[in-house]
Nucleic acid binder design. Sequence first.
RNA 1: GGAUGGGUGGCCGAGUGGUUUAUGGCACCGGUCUUGAAAACCGGCGUGCUCGCAAGGGUACCGGGGGUUCGAAUCCCUCCCCAUCCGCCA
Length: 468
Amino acid sequence: MFDIKSIRDNPAVFDAGLKRRGLEPLSAKLLVLDEARRAHVTKLQEAQARRNAASKEIGRAKGAKDEATAARLMAEVASLKDFLTSGEKTEKAETAKLDAALADIPNLPRDEVPDGADEKANVEVRRFGDPKAVPAAALNKPKQHFEIGEALDMMDFESAAKVSGARFVFLKGQLARLERALGQFMLDIHTEEFGYTEVNPPLLVRDDAAYGTGNLPKFEADLFFVQSFPLESGELDQLVAEAGFPRDQPLKEQLRFVMGVAKANRRTLIPTAEVSLTNLVREQILDEDALPKRFTACTPCFRSEAGSAGRDTRGMIRQHQFTKVELVSVTTPEKSLEEHERMTACAENILKRLGLPFRTMLLCTGDMGFASQKTYDIEVWLPGQDAYREISSCSVCGDFQARRMGARYRPKGSKDVKFVHTLNGSALAVGRTLVAVLENYQQADGSVMIPEALRPYMGNKDRIAKAQ
RNA sequence: GGAUGGGUGGCCGAGUGGUUUAUGGCACCGGUCUUGAAAACCGGCGUGCUCGCAAGGGUACCGGGGGUUCGAAUCCCUCCCCAUCCGCCA
């Protein structure tokens, strides 16, 4: 969310930032809304000032038993009433209009972010490990993870399709345990070595929270929602009568109406723990001493993957439900860039310990998420795909989310309050880490070696093999 | 699901229609005192918007929205949220 004042002060800079994101200039349009609103507010406030002054005099006049003066003033205030009533409504409407326009604008890239339209313009900043040195490199044709998992009889997409539909999976036996082990392993490192506080957060959140991180209102289609439907028997008939249920309209319209009613009672299934964790500081004014705050959580994430039909349809790469260990930091503006590097290093550290080759990419302007100012993606080597694939994304959001959430802090020795900076990163996406372990550690006989660091979490076994 | 009680500034908490600008305390900031600190004392101290070069002024906000009134934290309606008890329940 942008501060309209900063756009007013520097429209050219704002539009230039949008352009780097591949968007048309918006400042002119926004400033028209802003101008109209301010002109109106000024007029309204003058009328309110007159009303308040007169009302005070009325109080004094009545106290002095001067009924004639009181009556005259009352008549004067009454004449303002129409404008005051309508004017307050207009102000609300104009503010809402401006806010709605601002809420859909993505964060602007920092200067050091490379320009570009898509992932082809991302810039590699470093690399770790050698794809030719992993166990799978010894094989003629390394298999993809779903081939390995299905052959082990521990990864079942067919049953998942029957039970839940496409883009779900059953993990069984040692692979179910491997998923659990990975989550534990990552959490232990982040809490014990990197100072993150482990959190077990709500998976269902209010719209306000999803708005705070930037998932709403623009990306509603990417989310899943749950609710207990608010209507009891008879209430629907009442709604039809009062609000005009569009019964004679196409089904789509009827559905839209019902969804509108339902929206009031819904909860969002978190698409990432970033939503729950970042909103931990919403609507607060923190002491600077309390910063940075560092949270981590291992949670299921839910994404509708609308618009990604046909992409990564096989296997576990792109699922409606997956597990992820998330890192969130809340810092001062001065420390946020440094924290971004630190966070990315925490994520990379997991891959290093698992012996998985990766490269770290600085995303270009066209590939960054909505709330981000600057993002590093970490891409892990997948021998079965013969490619690097995203396994982590670490973003610094500046005050973009903080404004949406009302998350502020009081700088030491200052009376002013400022917005905090927020950061989030995956460390790591557990499902994809499992994929990477399978593909990199696969053996010719179809079994999978367990990386050393993970063995304590796997009953000290050294490999996953098909049950006899 | 039923019943009751609540939602006031960073925190705690008073305030049932005006004649003061929302008590008071804590925390915080400045000062006096002190070698320094603490204590004590004095002063300051909510957030947003808006007008103004500035100093400063205006306005809104006491969970959200609507209403009554010349005037609402206070009265009415409605919604949301929180807490407690009962019921059900992993």
